[in-house]
């Protein structure tokens, strides 16, 4: 034991150790899961934003990605399934100095929580929403999600998914989001920069991040973790400003990444202050 402590002293801490709850590491995410990378990119974005770290708050829902809030060393809230966005809305409205990040998964944000997402985007609520899209419900063992590709296998679509998935950037754009981007976890550097930009931008920002779930999605669809990452490398193209309606995820045709929307609109808080706080 004494020997181990000595080693720890010699080794400098990981550059992100100040932003993670090191007493909770290792995290629960499986070998090859990309959530840790997305989370890491989020922490880098937070650091590089230059914003005061104490004024960050992270809100998550339920699911694998929902556990992120439990590992970040800022005020963090692990709420109920699908309700991260309305919880974050209350947090932000009651203290507008906070920079509120919603970090959650595709099932949480777009199936059970889909209504909250479109309304927060419509209001232009000042939040940064990061969605780790692993195409499945990982925590419960790999059931079909609102993002699972057509014909993909899951534990509840054993012969293939009969439904079609959401195009999330299109949904965000149509709902009124002022910043919309998509990356994969392999594009971690672009992702970190994108998160930094989104954090510094006022209004509703949405970043979708494709990320492998080798255990509960990959295994059933003949995709090893490295296969998925190689696909992210070979079958994606960065096309900033692409038309949101072209952004369906189909790796046979190629998947478009990049920053699609970056516009300025008054936020909910700005409008509320202007209309309600200047009354006689």
């Amino acid at each position: 034991m004494a020997k181990k402590n000595k080693k720890a002293e010699l080794q400098p801490a990981h550059p992100l150790d100040d932003l993670i709850r090191t007493d909770r590491i290792p995290h629960i995410w499986c070998q090859g899961c990309g959530i840790g990378t997305v989370f890491s990119a989020c922490l880098i974005g937070m650091k590089h934003s230059g914003l005061e770290l104490n004024k960050f708050a992270m809100v998550s829902g339920i699911g694998c990605s929902g556990r992120a809030a439990g590992y970040v060393n800022v005020d963090s809230f692990h709420t109920t399934h699908g309700r991260a966005i309305p919880f974050a809305t209350g947090l932000k409205l009651a203290n507008t100095d906070l920079n509120v990040i919603v970090f959650s998964g595709d099932g949480d944000l777009f199936a059970i929580g889909g209504n909250h997402f479109i309304h927060a985007a419509r209001r232009n609520m000042d939040l940064t929403v990061i969605c780790v899209n692993n195409l499945t419900y990982g925590m419960t063992g790999g059931q079909v999600a609102a993002t699972t590709p057509h014909m993909a296998r899951s534990t509840t679509t054993p012969s293939g998914n009969p439904e079609n998935p959401f195009n999330l950037p299109l949904l965000a754009f149509a709902s009124g989001a002022t910043y919309v981007a998509r990356w994969t976890m392999l594009h971690a550097r672009d992702l970190a920069e994108s998160i930094q930009v989104a954090l510094l931008k006022k209004g509703f920002s949405f970043i979708e991040v494709l990320s492998p779930c080798p255990i509960n999605y990959g295994r059933r669809n003949k995709e090893k973790a490295l296969d998925t990452l190689n696909m992210y490398q070979e079958k994606t193209i960065i096309k900033n400003g692409a038309d949101p309606s072209e952004l369906d995820i189909d790796f046979d045709k190629g998947v478009i990444l990049g920053k699609f929307i970056d516009v300025d609109k008054p936020t909910h808080i700005e409008n509320y202050d202007k209309i309600y706080r200047t009354r006689e």
């Binding site: 919880f87 932000k92 009651a94 209504n115 309304h119």
Partner: peptide, 25 residues
């Protein structure tokens, strides 16, 4: 601050969030 949320689930979720920001909600 008053906000009209999209449903009652969102309403109470926002109330809990606001309470953690330190205000009576």
């Amino acid at each position: 601050t008053y906000i009209q949320m999209e449903d009652e689930i969102a309403a109470i979720a926002s109330v809990l969030g606001a309470s953690w920001a330190g205000v009576k909600s």
